[in-house]
Design a protein around this nucleic acid. Structure first.
Lengths: 114, 114
DNA sequence: CGTAATACATCGTATCGCGAAGTATAGTAT
DNA sequence: ATACTATACTTCGCGATACGATGTATTACG
């Protein structure tokens, strides 16, 4: 997949990966892998960025002798996901512009989003 | 709209704007405006990039005393649009991961893509 | 005993969108 | 007449970002 296309999804995917339950770096990468791949350096950069933006909080815990940093989504993080959902409508409109699909008689677009 | 989300669309939108008939910078911006906005500096950078990548060809013509550079899409440019269409399926899959939509019983996804 | 997997961190690089500023002409308003 | 707006293209530099390379440290496995 085109790298530029990935850019807008990475951050929100990381948030989605911790939305249901707290998670840690290595697990996030594995959970995201079927959908979108990212390197460790990218992930930890994103996590740091999201923490600075107060979209997640961090808690360090020991797990079998190793340290793990568990990430927890904040209300701001959930808001970010909601904003992505509204952006999706715009994305669809642009997609149709590119593919020259007729936008006027689209009735059933449920699978694409709200 | 999120800037990062825009990134993957800009290039392919410019190609879409010249796909039906040759166009020039200023007109491309105006045609794209209802869907996605971009500054002149961005556009001309993209046009140069697409030209280098052989996705479009350029022809200079005079129009009412002023010079215009008309851009014409090449087969490589059309291929780029086709690749975007296939990428869209992946995008949808990621969208559903983020929104936790059930991917298993999606039958009618016509309005979203091919 | 070495290799792979787990787990996190940092640095430098390349790409890219965009604001700012510049050049030039044609049409419109004051 | 003069100023402003629209048209049309160009270049520079900044900031954001993804990622490969590299490093550190522990556990598990053969």
């Amino acid at each position: 997949m085109d790298i530029q296309l990935k850019r807008g999804l990475l951050e929100v995917c990381v948030l989605a990966a911790i939305a249901d339950e707290d998670s840690y770096g290595y697990k996030i990468i594995k959970d995201m892998k079927p959908y979108i791949e990212l390197s460790e350096s990218t992930l930890y950069t994103i996590l740091k960025r999201l923490e600075t933006a107060d979209m997640l909080s961090v808690r360090t815990a020991e797990h079998e002798g190793r340290l793990r940093k568990y990430y927890h989504i904040t209300p701001a993080g959930r808001k970010r996901i909601e904003e992505f959902k509204s952006d999706w409508a715009e994305m669809l409109s642009i997609y149709r512009f590119v593919t020259k699909e007729d936008e006027s008689h689209v009735e059933n677009n449920i699978p694409c989003g709200p």
